[in-house]
Computed example of a mutant assay.
Amino acid sequence: MPELRRFDAAEFLETQEDVTAFLAEAFETGDASFIAKAIGTVVRARGTTEIARETGLSRENLYRALSGETRVEFDTVMRVLGALGVELEPKHRAA
């Protein structure tokens, strides 16, 4: 019988386009906890240690902040997104 493994989206985020699409879907939900978890998934995909080094945050703080269990500081989100090479663009609405 084949061994079952827990699905981990981080294993499938191979390109910047994958990351952009994944995060866009998360932001569409408008759910702050879900968005934080999605960012955490991308951090794991890219390497938590490297992102911690680039942001100046500890790995433990990244895990905690992006768990979806606590309220994450906006500054932390922006630092992490910057380290991931993700830029936020306002959604333009037709008048």
Rank of each mutant, 00 (worst) to 15 (best):
54 E>K: 10
48 T>N: 06
74 F>W: 00
18 D>W: 07
93 R>K: 07
39 I>W: 01
27 F>V: 01
64 R>C: 05
7 F>M: 14
58 S>R: 09
55 T>Y: 02
12 F>Q: 09
40 G>K: 00
34 F>Y: 13
23 L>D: 01
89 E>I: 11
94 A>N: 07
61 N>F: 15
79 R>I: 06
94 A>H: 11
93 R>N: 06
17 E>P: 04
76 T>I: 10
49 T>F: 13
72 V>D: 00
92 H>D: 01
80 V>W: 02
89 E>F: 04
75 D>S: 15
94 A>R: 11
48 T>F: 12
35 I>T: 06
6 R>W: 04
2 P>L: 13
68 G>I: 01
45 A>E: 05
64 R>L: 12
17 E>Y: 14
95 A>M: 08
47 G>Q: 13
83 A>T: 09
79 R>T: 11
64 R>Y: 08
32 A>L: 11
86 V>T: 11
45 A>H: 08
16 Q>P: 14
43 V>W: 01
31 D>A: 12
53 R>T: 13
61 N>E: 06
60 E>D: 14
46 R>E: 03
83 A>W: 13
38 A>C: 08
1 M>W: 07
34 F>M: 07
61 N>Y: 14
76 T>D: 04
62 L>T: 02
65 A>K: 00
86 V>W: 08
11 E>K: 13
80 V>N: 03
68 G>D: 01
44 R>Y: 09
3 E>I: 15
58 S>V: 09
82 G>C: 11
28 E>R: 15
56 G>A: 14
10 A>Q: 11
26 A>P: 02
93 R>C: 02
40 G>H: 03
95 A>H: 14
64 R>F: 10
58 S>A: 13
81 L>E: 06
81 L>M: 09
19 V>Q: 08
14 E>N: 13
92 H>N: 01
92 H>V: 00
18 D>F: 10
4 L>H: 15
8 D>L: 11
14 E>W: 14
65 A>E: 00
3 E>Q: 13
